[in-house]
Design a protein around this nucleic acid. Structure first.
Lengths: 140, 140
DNA sequence: CTTGACCTTCCCATGATGGGAAGGTCCACC
DNA sequence: GGTGGACCTTCCCATCATGGGAAGGTCAAG
């Protein structure tokens, strides 16, 4: 199997497969006489593992950790769970951060008439005029 | 005021102030005889505007748009609101995406015993074993 | 005059991905 | 046999926003 087929089978672009090899996430593949990389079912399985981990928001570094744990038959499930839990906490922190932004923005947007006049509480807030207390909207 | 004081007064690092100047987000500052940039209250105000926009998750490109609207006395509040609304939608999309990850991860983590045994449903999921019935897509 | 805290420009790194150029290879079809 | 197109290879560059750090100039206080 060439890199194109491996890409189709795994959902990882050929560019990324080469990159993962370059940074040591996956082992350098064997080459045919024409210098093409050769892939088998095993490699596709690994690439799909990586793809799935990336889809769950794990960084490549975390993905590498998970990949090593997967291949280490002597791992403990606690060590895997630890990686997942840390990632969950990180995701939740980022979600909360963005939710705070959304809350403020919705409040400001709600206060903005959105018409032809130049007067705008959104700009006032950004400019530090800050007359709008960011209280919970009654509607919430 | 030198760049260090402007940085302290605005919360934007000196590095970033120079960068914003370089990419044209702010105008090149006047220099003293010793080639130091000079800042006044006006510039600090602009930097704080930028800082606040960044804190609300606006990209530098969006920030530039907002900055221009702020300085355009003939703007319409509708044009400002539009920028904000687009950003809100984007934030909500990203939040939903991450919430999906958290949901899956929490389920997997919950199913993982987290002890000394190697058996781990988190790795099973990543590897495509997919026995988890919550949202198991049997994609061939 | 020295010391240290500033300032300047310039280059490099991050994380993950894509774009694209320049060149080699393979296969199918005529 | 030749040719075209679909592959493959490596290499460089761009993104987005930010920080690190080197090498060198400047200023103020001791």
């Amino acid at each position: 199997m060439n890199i194109g087929q491996a890409s189709d089978a795994s959902g990882v672009s050929a560019k990324m497969i080469r990159y993962y090899e370059q940074i040591g996430l996956i082992r350098p593949m064997g080459r045919t006489g024409n210098n093409y990389r050769v892939y088998g079912a095993e490699e596709v399985h690994i690439l799909r593992f990586i793809k799935r981990a990336r889809n769950l928001g794990f960084s490549l570094e975390e993905t590498e950790t998970l990949l090593k744990l997967w291949q280490d038959k002597g791992r403990t499930s606690a060590s895997v769970k630890e990686v997942a839990e840390v990632h969950i906490v990180d995701l939740e922190r980022r979600i909360a951060e963005m939710q705070g932004m959304v809350k403020t923005l919705k409040h400001l947007s709600h206060c903005c008439s959105g018409d032809d006049r130049p007067n705008c509480p959104i700009l006032d807030d950004l400019a530090g005029v800050a007359p709008a207390p960011v209280r919970a909207k009654k509607r919430a």
